[in-house]
Amino acid sequence: MSWTSRALINCAALQHNLNIAKKTAPNSKVLAVIKSNGYGHGITHVAQSLIAADGFAVASIQEAILVRKNHPSKTILVLQGFIDSRELALFKQYKLNPVIHSKAQLAILEFSGSKALSSDTVYWFKIDTGMGRLGFAADECITSLNRLEKYLNSKSNIILMSHFANADDITDKTTNNQIKIFNDIFLNYNYQKTIANSAGILGWSESHFDWIRAGIMLYGVSPFNNYEQTYNLQTVMTLESRLIAINHHKKGDTIGYGGGWRCPKDMTIGVVSIGYGDGYPRQAKTGTPVIIAGIKTSLIGRVSMDMICIDLSSIDKIELGGIVTLWGSDLEGNGLAIEEVAGCANTIAYELLCQITKRVELVYQ
């Protein structure tokens, strides 16, 4: 079948990166975070590739149900928890684990009775140690935890958790403070604990509690600002498109919407069949790198919905239909870090991966 844009997904790289997480925190169980359609890689295939993880973490009930269909006995944690009794019933039906992060959820449980969820359900009790998003405040968490224990009539089936806010900056002291708050509050509790995300796994060994939550690192992307340090992670996604036109322009010709880019000389310009309709970032600026024929060149002009223009002036052998690599590795092994592309678009690699649209074919290798 003919194609225009596709994302090549290296399943072996997913498994390699999971092993990196396991080796880095050998005494911890691993939750593979596969939310947002497996960070744009396709949640069903990603889950199958990461079957060796101890469990999966997703954002929503919808994602959890999709995963549960193929993994009937796997631990599945829903990071946003439930917001009403209707959703609570789905947790029971599909044997899902909730994050408990608010008094409203405790009230829903109490109102629903002791059999609202299965007896083997694990409740992941979340404290806000500095993220300021979900979780019980430090001064109310013990009271709320006691309330959950009373509801369960048990001190089992509870895991204590929190989430890092600034761990992507290895020099930021916020992470140390969050670990200290977490440890101080739960000093006298023997529950299993988890706080480490990808940055915590790779940069903060003191955060390796009973469980770790591997996310962006599984997809071969560094969680740190200095992406050139790869931690031996392997790239999972390579985004490719094709050259659909080769045009020869004169000095002074304008390229793209708004005429904001003007040819500084007579030059050859290629048109590539990808744009923001495929998830390529509209904010990508002139100079954003791409690879064609094994040579790195750059984007010129604005990104359109379906097309971008690239500079072909320094490339001798060009063929219509040639493959253009937007990030990842080309057939000759030339690499283009998604983090570099993200920087040129004033965003982060997470967003680029997650915004890949259905128009892009996912090809699993």
Results as ranks from 00 to 15, higher is better:
188 N>D: 15
182 F>I: 04
216 I>P: 02
206 E>Q: 15
212 I>G: 04
238 T>M: 01
165 A>I: 04
192 Q>C: 07
209 F>S: 01
195 I>L: 15
191 Y>P: 03
189 Y>R: 14
230 T>K: 15
204 W>L: 14
232 N>A: 14
211 W>A: 05
202 L>A: 07
186 F>C: 06
232 N>Y: 11
185 I>H: 03
217 M>L: 14
206 E>G: 09
158 I>Y: 07
144 S>I: 00
241 S>I: 05
235 T>P: 11
230 T>C: 08
151 Y>S: 05
230 T>F: 09
198 S>V: 04
222 S>Q: 08
247 N>M: 13
191 Y>L: 06
176 N>I: 10
174 T>M: 13
201 I>F: 03
226 N>W: 08
238 T>R: 00
178 Q>R: 08
225 N>M: 12
186 F>Q: 06
146 N>M: 06
215 G>W: 07
167 A>V: 03
221 V>K: 05
209 F>Q: 01
240 E>A: 07
149 E>S: 11
205 S>T: 14
193 K>V: 05
241 S>Q: 06
224 F>D: 10
220 G>E: 09
149 E>N: 11
230 T>P: 05
193 K>S: 05
145 L>T: 06
176 N>D: 14
144 S>T: 02
233 L>T: 04
233 L>V: 07
211 W>I: 07
183 N>Y: 02
152 L>G: 08
150 K>W: 07
237 M>I: 14
153 N>G: 12
178 Q>W: 06
228 E>A: 13
150 K>Y: 11
151 Y>N: 09
243 L>E: 01
175 T>P: 00
201 I>L: 07
175 T>N: 00
210 D>A: 13
169 D>T: 12
153 N>K: 12
196 A>Y: 00
215 G>R: 08
142 I>L: 14
217 M>E: 01
196 A>K: 00
209 F>L: 04
229 Q>E: 13
169 D>K: 13
196 A>G: 02
235 T>G: 09
247 N>Y: 06
181 I>F: 02
235 T>V: 12
225 N>P: 02
144 S>F: 01
223 P>I: 09
175 T>Y: 00
242 R>Y: 04
175 T>S: 06
207 S>Q: 06
174 T>I: 11
230 T>Y: 08
221 V>H: 02
172 D>K: 10
165 A>S: 15
238 T>C: 01
205 S>K: 14
207 S>L: 05
187 L>A: 15
225 N>A: 12
222 S>I: 11
228 E>S: 14
148 L>K: 07
219 Y>N: 10
246 I>R: 11
214 A>F: 04
193 K>P: 03
200 G>N: 05
244 I>D: 13
173 K>S: 15
200 G>L: 02
168 D>V: 10
190 N>T: 11
189 Y>I: 06
160 L>G: 00
240 E>D: 12
209 F>M: 01
148 L>H: 05
175 T>W: 00
170 I>E: 11
177 N>R: 14
189 Y>N: 12
178 Q>A: 10
184 D>H: 13
194 T>L: 14
245 A>K: 13
213 R>F: 00
179 I>T: 07
178 Q>T: 06
189 Y>Q: 12
181 I>A: 03
203 G>M: 10
